[in-house]
Design a protein around this nucleic acid. Sequence first.
DNA 1: CAGTACCA
DNA 2: TGCA
Length: 194
Amino acid sequence: MEGFRLWPGALDAEAQSQLVQAVFGALGTAPLYRPQTPGGRPFSVQMSNLGPLGWVSDRGGYRYQPTHPVTGQAWPAIPQMLLDLWAATVGGKRAPDACLVNLYRDGAKMGLHQDRDEADLTAPVLSISLGDAAQFRIADGEGRTRTLRLTSGDVCALTGSARLARHGIDRVLEGSSRLIPGGGRLNLTLRIAR
DNA sequence: CAGTACCA
DNA sequence: TGCA
């Protein structure tokens, strides 16, 4: 599918553990929390953010905001490693200003959705998979979907015609990796929100 | 100004 | 984000 780009194993074991360490360190000041959909139902994933802007959802809808909805504090910085990874993969003039952190544990999943809360819907979205492998599903323009397995260290991007593709995580293969303290799958999504 | 990454 |  045009515009969906995958870099299998882009991150080696050392880079993966450095990244997990950096993100878990940042979660000390921006703790994971469980948001609600606008309809008031809880997400199964736990979320936090890094960077000037973070994606949040609550009864007020979806949006990007500069502060953590529970603590009121600014989100921690995006680690340089991730900015470098963005430059090395999707590149472009602008650096990402938002990094959504999603932790999948205990059967957490993510229904099919579009990323469309960004000001410029032509700027790429870059996703980094860490920890347990997962079944990722992405739809084409006709609504046909294809499933692929994302494993720890894989990096993928939604660009061009796939930028607005519906996608989601059907299931996580629990226990398939020992990378994440406490287990699970950690997904980092870099975006240009504004 | 309708719906939302939730749920079936 | 209040649903008028």
